[in-house]
């Protein structure tokens, strides 16, 4: 069987160059958010969620539990769905972050957003940005997901209003649409 990934048997034990120590105060962070390069000042203890909401005024990503147990803060980092409340912003240096605000292009909703409206896949709407981001991540890997695929993708996104059946429909329907 072919080896996957780097060869892990030869990790160099030699020191490279001086390691930069950042913080504890604010430090400059450069990353890409919704396709735009941004630079923000953040202390290392600031989460990506708080950075998005407060420093970048992207309040579409919601804070619900702030401890990785609800999924409302789901965003994509380098194309994969993660919890931004458990991610320190400083670890996202140079990475590509996508939030709910970046989905609609030229005033046109993303197919997943349209599918959510058509399937009535939300009630209060507070979990919705996270649910949508989870499904967007799924569709990039699985363009025509089954109901089970969608369930697995949003099993980490709680909805207290109980819109789940419609969320699953929206995910499946979004896969059937073309942008």
């Amino acid at each position: 069987m072919a080896a996957r990934g780097p060869n892990i048997s030869n990790v160099p034990l030699t020191s490279a160059r001086r390691v930069v120590l950042r913080g504890p105060g604010a430090t400059e962070l450069a990353l890409t958010v919704n396709g735009q390069a941004v630079t923000v000042q953040v202390p290392p203890r600031r989460t990506l969620l708080d950075t998005l909401r407060e420093a970048l005024a992207l309040t579409g990503t919601k804070k619900v539990c702030d401890e990785g147990t609800c999924g409302a803060c789901t965003v994509l980092v380098d194309g994969r769905a993660i919890y931004s409340c458990m991610t320190l912003a400083v670890t996202c240096e140079g990475k590509r972050v996508e939030t709910i605000e970046g989905l609609a292009k030229d005033g046109e909703l993303h197919p997943v957003q349209r599918a959510f409206i058509d399937a009535d896949a939300f009630q209060c709407g507070f979990c919705t940005p996270g649910q949508i981001m989870s499904i967007v991540a799924l569709l990039r890997e699985t363009p025509a997901p089954t109901e089970d695929d969608v369930r697995r993708a949003v099993a980490g996104n709680l909805c207290r209003c109980g819109a789940y059946p419609n969320i699953v429909s929206a995910g499946v329907n979004a896969g059937k649409r073309k942008r």
């Binding site: 160099p12 030699t14 390691v19 930069v20 950042r22 913080g23 290392p44 203890r45 458990m86 320190l88």
Partner: peptide
């Protein structure tokens, strides 16, 4: 969360050197 400094070494040796008293190793962070 308390305030702390942050480093992202490129080598294991640097990481081990930094992991002295009061330092913690961060991977996924979950």
């Amino acid at each position: 969360m308390n305030a702390f400094s942050y480093a992202r070494p490129r080598t294991l040796a640097d990481a081990l050197r930094l992991l002295r008293n009061g330092a913690a190793a961060l991977a996924g962070g979950t």
